[in-house]
Amino acid sequence: MGLEALFDPAFAASLPRFITPILLAALGGALCERAGVFNIALEGFVLVGAFSAVLGAYFFGSAAMGALTAVFGGVLMGLIFAEFHLRRPGDPIVVSIALNLLAAGLTTYLLRAIFDVAGAFRDPAIVGFEPIHIPLVAAIPLVGPVLSGQSALFYVALGAAVFMHVFFARHRLGLRLRAAGENPAALVAGGVSPERVRLWALVLCGALCGLAGAQLSIANVNLFVENMSAGRGWIAVVAVLLTRGRPLPLLAIVCLFGFVDSLSFRVQGLGWPQQFTDMMPYVATLAVLVVLSWWRLRRSA
């Protein structure tokens, strides 16, 4: 094996497949983090998004409709979170654990109830996203295959990261979100309900996580597998915690995760047992987490 094997165009082209879902979910998590909602149910949000996307893509026969239903499913999860954490005094960790479990149970249950299959559902009627080829960009060496020929959701994710940076800095809701996370009493004193602001954070988070799920089920592949979020929501949670919800560092760290993740996908061809390549994203995330936490701890001491 040689290093060139890792840096061929196919490898570059596979990067966005890993980055997109984690980035979208992490951006959703960032909204909650900045608004002071401790949402560690991203895993469940993404899973519901993935399932809803397949529902939409199958029944309406279009990827766009799949994305729309995915957003709908994600928003629904956000609303449930809001109902039990904002309107009722449920602890966010408890609500998160319950919602992750709910997503795992409900998607499997509905998979069997609606499609009468267990494990995985694949069907030609599921219409997924087609890659978008950008003529000039595609020709650029190295970056070309990354930036061209990806699903629409990849571009949405990149745009969302940049937009969110501006949103937090200059948008009314962005400003209020930050205030809700930092000193909500100031919002109350100004006559703005922090709860309402947080509701918006959860709704938008649900929408983004829904899209993350759509990327998994109708862009990366055209099928739904039980528990197909497979820990990506948790990796997104780690990314959010590490960057404290700042969109641009978030983008950077997710790219790092994605790079390691696709690396592992790549080395699978080198004869490693599959379990090790499966393990790689988590070990890589843990390693980044350990290094950065340790560095932070030393700096603050």
Binding site: A98, L101, L102, A104, Y109
Partner: peptide, 8 residues
Amino acid sequence: ELAITMQA
């Protein structure tokens, strides 16, 4: 899987 759902 109804059981897991209802647990949640």
